[in-house]
Amino acid sequence: MSELARFGNLDIDWNLSPEHAVTMYLEWGNNDWHAEYPPVRSKADFSTYFVVDTWGERPVVRLIRRNSEGADELATIPLPNRLANRFIAEYGDLRGIMEPTREIKDWLKAELGHD
């Protein structure tokens, strides 16, 4: 069983990028009510999403649950070598927190049992 399978019941926002999350939760008033992601209204508003973290030696995927008070890291999963190597080939030595590629999202969905 996949390490991520235990999170299979969560409602994952597959389109939420790290940039959108910052706009929604950390820069209140910086987004439009008619945007894809309108401003949060209360502490009860939260999102669950994945990011790729490249600050370490190899990229890892982090499952994040965020609201206006902060972010909780629910899981950190190393990418399989084939996905990590493709990600590195595309982004080089760029360090940061990035949105997963389509290929990584497909792998994550399979790991969660969301095929």
Rank of each mutant, 00 (worst) to 15 (best):
A84S: 15
F7H: 11
W33V: 02
S17Y: 10
L79V: 02
R86W: 08
A89L: 04
R95C: 03
W33H: 01
N67M: 10
K43E: 15
N85S: 03
E111V: 00
P80D: 08
A5S: 13
I77C: 09
M98P: 00
N85G: 00
N85K: 09
H34S: 05
G8I: 11
A84T: 04
D13E: 15
K109N: 02
P80E: 08
E99K: 15
E90H: 09
P39C: 03
L83D: 06
N85R: 05
G56P: 03
I88P: 01
K105T: 06
W14H: 13
G70I: 10
P59I: 04
I104F: 09
E90A: 10
R86S: 08
M1V: 14
G70K: 10
V60L: 00
R6N: 00
E90R: 14
E103N: 07
R86G: 03
V52M: 06
D13H: 14
G8P: 06
L94H: 07
G92Q: 06
R58I: 00
E99W: 07
P78L: 00
A5Q: 11
D32K: 02
D45K: 07
A71S: 15
G70L: 12
I104C: 03
D93E: 13
V52A: 06
G70A: 11
M24D: 04
W33Y: 05
T101C: 06
Y37H: 12
R82Y: 11
L26A: 09
W28A: 13
A5R: 14
R58M: 00
N67A: 11
D72I: 09
S42R: 11
H114I: 00
M98L: 15
S47V: 03
M24H: 00
E57K: 08
S42A: 09
W14A: 04
E69M: 12
W14Y: 13
L26Y: 08
N9R: 13
G29W: 02
I104Y: 08
W28V: 05
R82V: 07
V52G: 06
E36R: 13
D45E: 10
F7V: 01
D72S: 14
R6M: 12
N31A: 07
R41I: 05
S68H: 07
V40P: 11
D11C: 02
R66A: 13
R82I: 04
L10G: 02
S2L: 07
N85I: 00
E99Q: 15
A21D: 12
L79S: 11
W55T: 02
A110Q: 06
E36P: 01
T54H: 10
D53E: 12
G29R: 05
N81F: 03
T76Y: 00
F50E: 06
P38I: 01
H20T: 09
G8H: 08
V22E: 15
P59E: 10
E90F: 14
F46A: 15
T23G: 11
P18R: 12
E36S: 06
E90D: 08
L4R: 05
L112K: 04
Y37T: 03
P39T: 03
L4G: 04
A75N: 02
M98V: 05
R6A: 01
R102Y: 11
V52P: 03
N15V: 05
A71C: 08
M98W: 15
E111R: 14
L26F: 07
